[in-house]
Amino acid sequence: MKPVSGDRWRGVAERSWRPAALLAACLVIWHLITVTGLVEAYLVPSPGKTFDLLVDKWSYLWGHTWVTTYETILGFVVAGVLGVLMAVAMVYSRTIESTAYPVLLFAQVIPKIAIAPLFVVWLGFGFEPKVVVAVLMAFFPVVISTVTGLKSVDAEMLELAATMGGGPVKTFAKIRFPAALPHLFAGLKVAITLAVTGAVVGEFVGSNEGLGYVILQANGNMDTPMLFAGLIVISVVGILLFLLLELAEQLMLPWHSSRRGAAVTTLLAKGGS
């Protein structure tokens, strides 16, 4: 059933050439736009110029990348832990669910970018307000997906557990939580991309470091190559964090049936299946 390594890499190649081709096409179009002078060079820098800048200013960018990544991961972890705890409380208590759910929804529809300045006022210009925005953005999908997952457990399985007499803690640990993991991971994957956005939004509002700051500075200086470089680095950070979660999911849930259908993003972690 498991492909041998030659097949494995062929599988990776087969699934990655289409997105790679699309990406290449986009780069070509970008390049053509700049060389034909369709758009002024100070508005859209050429891919080559952007790449050169990425290499030249690497150490400068690296420091800011690290700041944003740190804020993102911290916000994501806090949101993950709080989100799962919240979901567990909501699933086990109808009172908590009916009380907290409307408030959660209300909090979710408030645009985070609109309240981000408030956190700067409260918490200053350090990393804290960025983490708070990241947490706020990543929290909701974790709660919703975990609640769905914990409720997805077969009613008969829970009845069976009742006749086995393991009590609620064992039922949670051995049946409910593992059954919820596929849903939880789906939520975490959405959450990590939102956490990146949250961190950058936090940096936009008030900071002197991070990729959000780099982009804002570049914008102010009309330094479009730097602006594009910043965007590229942010995207790469988001994609890498996402793939890391995919990998964790595949290591932890090899049994999960949706894994049997290949997604675009599975190409790095595993060959065929």
Partner: peptide
């Protein structure tokens, strides 16, 4: 709920992992 019984349902209700 009694613990001194065994129960089998129509669906096997197995943990897929």
């Amino acid at each position: 709920p009694r613990h001194d019984i065994g129960f089998v349902f129509q669906r096997a209700a197995l943990l897929e992992w």
